[in-house]
Design a protein around this nucleic acid. Structure first.
Lengths: 168, 168
DNA sequence: TATTGTTATACTCTATAACTATA
DNA sequence: TATAGTTATAGAGTATAACAATA
């Protein structure tokens, strides 16, 4: 594609390839760590982390699906696995009988606590070890810009901005 | 994790989250486009693109696995799909009878040509539309630094730097 | 023996659609 | 009718291990 990239200048192409490669390598390293150290997939880790990070350690299924960007059935599946392992509990919401409240258990908190240092360590090591403070600032700024842009401007094709996981 | 991230400063944490989110959103958009426009997974697209980009339009399975970072059986599976669709051919290497030479067919080239503009368009739109030239330069520079670092410094755990896909 | 690649197999993940129950 | 969630099911992708063939 070196020559066949109309619309992307060399520098952009380079940045694109670097982004894909970096995130693939990072994802691979992080996935492996979570799997080995905590028997968790990244999605499962995200779910637990969000719960731990929430004020009361509980969120509705919908909130979780919103955050993790996941199909509802996929989330049910993952929640089932976490439930089976005693890392979360699920109970009907008192406010809205349709909703399910997911709560981290102590075991879930322990597992996150066990896994988080190594996780952070990997990220620190892989992503930031070689960077100056200025690099980090620049990266943060530019990626933030891109993220805001992506959120605001869905692909031209786009559906009415609906979440990806909406029944069929 | 807002408070529970020892070893990662706020700015680093922000950059990490932004990276994950940006690459997820990009991946999702790009995957969807390739699937809708060319019935290709990203891996399949990468394989075809590498072949198109190679001097003679042919590479050994091993070269492809190296580039795409893939297990050998996984590559065989994907190559099987591409072969079945007439997008590549596979033939024994004259040099080394163990090797298999994968070659893009005209249909494969056509498909890449058909899909590439839209692909580049998505990337341009999602990733670069909101950026200044300086932003792109900074992104390219910092991500390049990270990539080089990642390649040079595998995770501490690491095996002898071997490729990930080495028999068992 | 080491390398290249395929095959068999089993497992994980994800999406779709049908369904229940509540709002 | 719309929303929240589950279940059944089917398909894609991936990894592992056993295997065959060549170096």
């Amino acid at each position: 594609m070196s020559e066949a990239a109309p619309g992307l200048r060399a520098e952009e192409l380079g940045a694109y390839f670097a982004l894909v490669e970096v995130s693939n390598l990072l994802q691979y390293a992080v996935d492996e760590h979570l799997r080995v150290d905590g028997a968790l997939s990244y999605v499962q880790f995200q779910v637990l982390a969000r719960l731990v990070d929430s004020p009361e350690g509980k969120l509705r299924m919908t909130d979780l699906a919103d955050g993790v960007v996941y199909s509802r059935s996929g989330l049910t599946y993952q929640a089932g696995l976490l439930d089976k392992r005693g890392l979360i509990t699920r109970s009907p919401s008192p406010d809205d009988e349709r909703s399910v409240i997911v709560a981290v258990t102590d075991a879930g908190r322990d597992l996150v606590a066990q896994v988080l240092p190594g996780h952070v360590d990997r990220v620190q090591h892989l992503l930031f070890e070689a960077l100056t403070a200025d690099d980090v600032a620049a990266l943060n700024s530019v990626l933030g810009k891109i993220r805001d842009h992506m959120r605001a401007a869905p692909p031209r094709s786009a559906k009415p901005r609906a979440r990806r996981n909406q029944a069929g």
